[in-house]
């Protein structure tokens, strides 16, 4: 009972996500930040090691219950890395500096002793968290602010389904430029429809096309701009189903594919095999074939995958709040965000 008492905050978060009280990944991020704030300010820990253990337990609990929702785990892993670096910099102040050799080889003999009690660690971490919170809140804005660098006048932009980040990006561009948008409706959820209506309200010229028309329309498109669910460690995407087709069509016509992503969507996970059951989430087949179809359902197994795997070579550029990055640079961002010891959990 004691252990579950400890984890009640993360279980509450999980249950809120499952009950759909929190829906967008941004809200999950804010909640996670709040939770971490609580742990750091009120949790029972004396040393960095204990704090890290508390956070690790939560990551485990979360990734077991909601393996398809990486945002919360990513933020917690990032904070783990921050704890490590803060400890390191504090010990550096007191002790000797590392030699270049040690930094390059990551010599384990100089492993820090995290179990020491560090007096001002709490205030430093809380300071960082409030900074991080601001970063989270301004992230979408920062991404949108780069819009005019990427969208030029009279261009035709293609996007798929609905993404708040993309919507904001396009709206921001529309303040300075005239361009038209083609929205792929994204069956079977058809979220593209609501995206299109949101864009037209901002006087952006918008066309909705069915998923089947993607290849035909692609030749007139100047840029593909999409959101994603997750950015994988190799620079690939786990994105709404249908995006793989769009990316392939774009490749055929050599049209750049830009992916808007918050930093917390970057995971340290690789794809074992993308056709494996565990990579994808399968939603109810009811949106593909109605339950009232009769005896055919007895003998057919219908899959309705939610995600597509898009390999890194189909992505031209990632746009985060820090600017644009190519897929091959993701490994670098990864090591900035997370500590290698936390990649696998």
């Amino acid at each position: 009972m004691k252990q579950t008492d400890d984890l009640s905050d993360v279980i509450k978060l999980i249950s809120d996500i499952k009950h759909k009280n929190i829906q967008s990944s941004h809200d999950v991020a804010i909640r996670t930040e709040k939770m971490l704030d609580n742990i750091i300010s009120q949790g029972k820990w004396d040393s960095a090691l204990e704090l890290m253990e508390l956070i690790k337990q939560r990551i485990k609990c979360f990734s077991q219950s909601l393996p398809d929702e990486p945002t919360a785990s990513n933020i917690m892993k990032h904070i783990l890395k921050v704890i490590r670096t803060e400890c390191q910099s504090m010990s550096k102040k007191t002790g000797d500096t590392h030699s270049l050799h040690q930094i390059v080889t990551g010599d384990a003999t100089h492993e820090l002793d995290y179990s020491e009690t560090v007096s001002n660690l709490k205030s430093v971490l809380l300071g960082y968290l409030s900074e991080y919170k601001e970063e989270l809140e301004s992230s979408a804005e920062n991404i949108a602010a780069q819009a005019s660098e990427h969208i030029h006048s009279n261009e035709t932009i293609l996007t798929v389904g609905r993404s708040r980040t993309v919507e904001r990006f396009l709206k921001s561009a529309s303040k300075q430029r005239m361009f038209s948008v083609i929205v792929v409706e994204g069956a079977p959820s058809y979220l593209g429809h609501s995206m299109a209506s949101a864009l037209t309200k901002n006087n952006i010229q918008t066309t909705v096309i069915p998923d089947s028309a993607v290849f035909a329309m692609m030749s007139r498109v100047n840029k593909v701009i999409i959101g994603t669910h997750t950015v994988l460690a190799n620079g690939g995407l786990r994105a709404l189903s249908g995006i793989y087709v769009v990316a392939l069509a774009a490749k055929h016509y050599s049209i750049p594919v830009m992916v808007l992503s918050h930093m917390y969507k970057l995971t340290s996970l690789y794809v074992g095999s993308n056709d494996h059951e565990t990579f994808n989430v399968h939603a109810s087949p009811a949106s593909v074939i109605p339950y009232s179809s009769g005896s055919i359902l007895n003998s057919v197994n219908i899959k309705n995958p939610v995600f597509d795997y898009v390999p890194p070579e189909l992505v031209t550029l990632f746009i985060t709040h820090q600017g644009g990055n190519v897929p091959s640079y993701i490994y670098r961002l990864l090591s900035e965000m997370y500590h290698p010891d936390d990649y696998d959990m």
């Binding site: 939603a283 109810s284 009811a286 339950y291």
Partner: peptide, 28 residues
């Protein structure tokens, strides 16, 4: 209608049917 699903295991036939539908994600 739609993706709303409801069944009760009231006999062996329904046990089989519901197991199959669970596996086929009808209860997502």
């Amino acid at each position: 209608k739609g993706s709303n699903y409801g069944s009760a295991i009231s006999n062996w036939r329904m046990y089989q049917a519901v197991s199959l539908e669970l596996n086929n994600k009808w209860v997502y």
